[in-house]
């Protein structure tokens, strides 16, 4: 009897959170998967004409999806490694100094809390062809002016702006995690290296990186997940059109999902579901590959 009473109590405390989680997390997970197979699905009435893999075929055949996939891949493959290397160097640098450490740390953390939409407008203006700070500064060195994101911009220029913005806003989180990792490394390793007069770069590669490898793996996986889901950055830079210059379609995979969801066409929710499942699978594959590679390299 005592056991029973306890059981009942536990569920009571859990109930508010659990009900919300069931409605907004667990049910959607299964329902989105199911919806992706429904033909002629109408979400207001819930009617549909049976199941098929038609929507997946449509997604894979869609030229829009191919462009979105390519954009997302380019963005991810450049921004993730670059931002990890920069964050790693900054963290190691920050960890090695005493004076100004707190102040610089605060500066590096600033982008973390900012509003994507607000700072997107700022980047837009920084990269403005005529009035922007970027063209002015590179002009001092005789470069440019570059179009970046106006009507004459090239694909590469526009993509560069997105990548720079993504790196800028993803640095703080990485630095925070690396820095807290560095602070747990035992000083003895460095003292031993000092006695042996090991060069600094070798200390970095042979001691710091291996001992930090669990954090590096964690950051790599979460960064890939984050980069694959890029949406707001592009939206805030390029507006609802998602284009710049010619042939400047810069929409990402998540953009493709929301575009399908937003259109009032019959069955569009099912198409959005199918593309979300595809995104989920792509992310899972990448995560699995990284886990496999890392398993051999990570030092715990």
């Amino acid at each position: 009897m005592f056991e029973n009473k306890h059981n009942w109590k536990g569920y009571l405390y859990l109930a508010p959170a659990l009900i919300l989680i069931l409605i907004f997390i667990i049910y959607p997970l299964f329902n989105t998967f199911l919806t992706s197979f429904k033909e002629n699905y109408q979400f207001m009435t819930g009617e549909y004409d049976g199941f098929s893999i038609q929507h997946y075929m449509d997604v894979f055949k869609s030229s829009k999806f191919k462009v979105a996939f390519k954009n997302t891949m380019i963005l991810t493959i450049i921004s993730v490694p670059v931002s990890i290397v920069i964050a790693l160097l900054i963290s190691v640098g920050l960890n090695s100094i005493k004076r100004l450490q707190g102040f610089l740390q605060t500066i590096f953390f600033l982008p973390y809390v900012t509003n994507v939409i607000a700072i997107g407008l700022v980047f837009q203006f920084m990269f403005n062809h005529n009035y922007g700070i970027i063209n002015t500064v590179i002009g001092w060195f005789g470069i440019g002016p570059v179009h970046w994101m106006d009507a004459y911009a090239s694909y590469g220029e526009a993509m560069a702006v997105i990548i720079i913005y993504s790196i800028w806003s993803s640095l703080p989180f990485k630095i925070m995690v690396f820095l807290s990792g560095l602070q747990t490394i035992d000083k003895q390793y460095y003292q031993a290296a000092q006695i042996d007069a090991t060069p600094k770069w070798r200390v970095f590669l042979r001691i710091t990186v291996p001992l930090l490898s669990p954090m590096i793996m964690y950051i790599t996986i979460t960064s890939f997940m984050g980069a694959f889901k890029t949406y707001e950055h592009v939206l805030s830079l390029f507006g609802d059109g998602g284009t710049a210059g010619d042939p400047g379609n810069l929409k990402t995979m998540v953009w493709y999902i929301y575009e399908a969801l937003d259109s009032s066409k019959k069955g569009s929710v099912a198409v959005a579901s199918a593309s979300a499942v595809v995104l989920f699978i792509v992310i899972m594959i990448f995560t699995a590959i990284q886990m496999y590679i890392n398993k051999k390299r990570v030092h715990y």
Binding site: I25, L29, M225, V254, V269, A276
Partner: peptide, 27 residues
């Protein structure tokens, strides 16, 4: 068991959930 299941849901991209939640809110 419930706790492990909840932890597993943190892996799921929000985009998968948003679609159904959108339908739920509309309904």
């Amino acid at each position: 068991t419930i706790f492990m299941l909840l932890l597993a849901t943190m892996m799921i991209p929000g985009e998968m959930l948003i679609i159904t939640n959108f339908v739920t809110i509309k309904n």
